[in-house]
């Protein structure tokens, strides 16, 4: 009998696992510690979000203890750094709106057309060259675009547009547009390229031309991807800093005239941090109140994008 070879188990029938017990406590311990460690790493990204919100909230509340929210949102003058300060954030919002609007006016149509061209018209091998080239444009640091706007585009535009000052929202907006164009083009191209070929063929079979197929079938089918790429573009335009700081200047004026200097929320933040505002001063708190406004705007855009994608996403086999 085999019982004579192996010592018989104390109780129950003998299963193999009773006899073969590799000592794996070490590997189990290392697995446990790795899961705990990496789980803690994963918490860092959650902590970042909490950190951003609480940082902004903390100083913003301090700010609103000194300045009434009513004044903040309704006053029409922004003189935060002067002796007799007035905090009308509308002025900065207007600056941000103006530069972003000019940029998006350029980036949305051009970006979408470029996406259509790459996906529908460009031959495969040309697409393989053009798409990385566009993404190269996206990889250029924004401070380089700032150089481009201030020192190359503005002097050029001054020959064409009369009364254009050195710092202006027109050239900042135009360059901003080219800076966010690749984002919109590349992401919408992904969405357009993913539309199944059968939809296009079905449309051709009904006698539509290529353009009618693109605008009538392909673009609506890719709508959710296109809209979320545009919303991301808007968020980038609103949060873009270096281009507007360098090219649009630092003078907070409530105007929609693209020829004069304006100050955006982001360029105000740069202006204050450059000036080394002491902790606890009203300037320092203003910084965070403006940051909070900017954060809330991008958060709302993000939520809008999520909602839109969930509501309109088309699923194809």
């Amino acid at each position: 009998m085999t019982d004579s070879v192996f010592p018989s188990p104390a109780a129950g029938d003998s299963t193999r696992s009773d006899r073969w017990k590799p000592n794996r406590s070490l590997s189990k311990l290392s697995q446990r510690s790795v899961v705990i460690l990496f789980g803690a790493f994963a918490m860092v990204s959650v902590a970042t979000t909490i950190g951003i919100i609480s940082t902004l909230l903390f100083e913003t509340i301090e700010f609103f203890l000194e300045v009434s929210p009513l004044h903040f949102f309704t006053a029409t003058r922004w003189t935060a750094l002067f002796a007799n300060p007035s905090f009308g954030v509308i002025v900065l919002l207007c600056g941000t709106f103006l530069t972003s609007f000019i940029g998006l006016l350029l980036a949305i149509p051009l970006g979408l057309l470029a996406a259509v061209c790459l996906s529908e018209y460009a031959p495969r091998n040309l697409r393989a060259v053009l798409k990385p080239a566009l993404e190269l444009l996206a990889g250029i640091p924004t401070v380089v675009f700032g150089y481009f706007a201030l020192l190359m585009v503005t002097p050029f535009l001054q020959n064409i547009v009369p009364g254009l000052s050195v710092f202006n929202s027109l050239s900042a907006g135009i360059v901003l547009g080219f800076a966010i164009l690749p984002t919109i083009a590349s992401l919408s191209e992904d969405a357009i390229f993913a539309v199944p070929q059968s939809l296009r063929q079905g449309c051709y079979a009904l006698g539509a031309t290529k353009r009618e197929t693109v605008t009538g079938v392909v673009l609506p089918a890719a709508l959710s991807g296109i809209v979320s790429s545009i919303i991301l573009g808007v968020a980038r335009a609103v949060g873009e800093t270096m281009i507007v700081t360098l090219a649009a200047g630092q003078s907070p004026t409530l105007t929609l005239d693209p020829r004069v200097s304006v100050q955006t929320m982001t360029s105000f933040i740069v202006q204050v941090t450059k000036g080394d505002a002491p902790y606890g001063s009203i300037e320092f708190k203003t910084l965070f109140a403006v940051g909070m406004t900017l954060f809330v705007i991008t958060l709302l855009l993000n939520i809008l994008s999520f909602w839109f994608v969930r509501k309109f996403q088309e699923k194809y086999e």
């Binding site: 970042t48 940082t55 902004l56 991301l232 949060g239 873009e240 800093t241 933040i269 965070f288 900017l294």
Partner: peptide
């Protein structure tokens, strides 16, 4: 995915404060 859309300058303010 939310963090990816936050403007970089906001991270700067987080860094400044924290």
């Amino acid at each position: 995915s939310n963090l990816a859309a936050v403007p970089s300058i906001i991270y700067g303010m987080l860094g400044l404060f924290v």
